[in-house]
């Protein structure tokens, strides 16, 4: 049970909250104290749109503890449209095949549960962009 860690990361996980560096405007995800681009303090929050594309992907058949019930599942390196790259599960694939460059969008999903009696952990995953009859 790591309730304190899940609690600490909830904003980042639920809403894709990262940072923008006030010195060089580098967009940062996951959030950290020091800007990786210029080395200055970076603590200004920045909420990402959740849109991005698949940079690369692989399918996990031997899942780590806590994720077995979802296996097999696909994880991807997703390049956010604002720049940063992150690792996340892909979901709602149905019968769609995953391709490099595929447009995806962030959804908040159940990541795992700590057993029958434990806490449910929620966070970001990405799914194929929802097809819309009339685009926004």
């Amino acid at each position: 049970m790591e309730a304190s860690r899940h609690w600490r990361l909830k904003q980042e996980r639920y809403t894709l909250m990262g940072e923008i560096c006030p010195h060089c405007e580098e967009k940062i995800f996951p959030p950290r104290d020091i800007c990786p681009a210029c080395g200055e303090n970076a603590r200004n929050l920045y909420k990402y749109s959740g849109r991005g594309e698949v940079y690369s992907f692989t399918t996990v058949y031997q899942a780590p503890a806590g994720y077995e019930e979802n296996a097999p599942y696909t994880i991807a390196l997703v390049r956010l449209e604002e720049g940063p790259m992150l690792t996340a599960q892909l979901t709602d694939l149905g019968d769609e095949t995953v391709e490099i460059g595929m447009p995806v969008e962030m959804v908040t999903r159940k990541l795992r549960s700590d057993g029958e009696r434990g806490m449910l952990v929620y966070g970001y995953k990405f799914r194929p962009q929802l097809a819309r009859t009339i685009s926004a």
């Binding site: 639920y14 019930e69 979802n70 959804v107 999903r109 449910l120 929620y122």
Partner: peptide, 11 residues
């Protein structure tokens, strides 16, 4: 789906 429930759907 496997990773959905009333919380994720409500969000």
């Amino acid at each position: 789906g496997l990773d959905e429930d009333v919380i994720t759907m409500s969000i």
